[in-house]
């Protein structure tokens, strides 16, 4: 945005953090813009119409719906977290507000979270050490709130060997450490 101000990752770096432990790859997400979208009271129908027109999916509970440019996952009744490419959607909140009108409350959430994409052949064993989600049985696209090493996170299953984790940005180092420690214990 402003040339004078250089963005810093949650780890105080310029480039996203990438870690490889055995078969597991951990990649920090810095190219995703996030915003929350919540229906105003009694305005769900309006929001649904506007969202459909804007190409914004509003999936049901425990679900992540991919899309272009907007993907989203359910976080609470009539509330979603929306993802979009950061480069084109840094102003995601303004863009969604314009698209959705006054039937929704929109709040920028991009820097409230640190995101990690985890990939391996199979993430089940890692998830067993990290959280109480039954990862093996969860369908692809399963999105849920859970706790990893005392930190409240969102976990999105993208396949048997792929998952996205959003945790509190200020605790990025603690969250990564928890994932790394579990991975080392399993490697």
């Amino acid at each position: 945005m402003a040339d004078a101000l250089k963005a810093m990752t949650a780890f105080g770096l310029r480039e996203p953090k990438q870690v490889k432990i055995g078969a597991l790859s951990i990649k920090e997400l810095t190219d995703v813009a996030l915003a929350s979208v919540a229906a105003r009271k009694g305005r769900m129908a309006d929001l649904s119409r506007a969202a459909a027109a804007a190409g914004l999916p509003l999936p049901g509970p425990s679900t992540h719906a991919p899309g272009d440019p907007y993907s989203s996952f359910w976080v609470a009744p009539e509330m979603w977290l929306v993802e979009a490419p950061f480069a084109s959607h840094e102003l995601i909140a303004d863009m969604l507000r314009a698209a959705l009108g006054d039937g929704a409350s929109v709040t920028e959430q991009t820097d409230a979270w640190v995101g990690f994409d985890l990939t391996a052949d199979d993430l089940t064993a890692l998830m067993q050490r990290l959280c109480n989600v039954d990862f093996a049985m969860a369908p692809d696209g399963h999105a849920t709130r859970t706790v990893m090493e005392h930190l409240g996170v969102y976990l999105i299953k993208r396949g048997k060997g792929a998952a996205r984790v959003y945790g509190p940005r200020s605790s990025a180092e603690s969250l990564l450490h928890a994932v790394e420690a579990a991975a080392v214990a399993l490697a």
Binding site: A38, R40, M79, S105, E108, Q109, A112, W113
Partner: peptide, 9 residues
């Protein structure tokens, strides 16, 4: 009323 924390944002 809709609420969300933005402490970290």
């Amino acid at each position: 009323v809709q609420l969300i924390s933005t402490t970290e944002a």
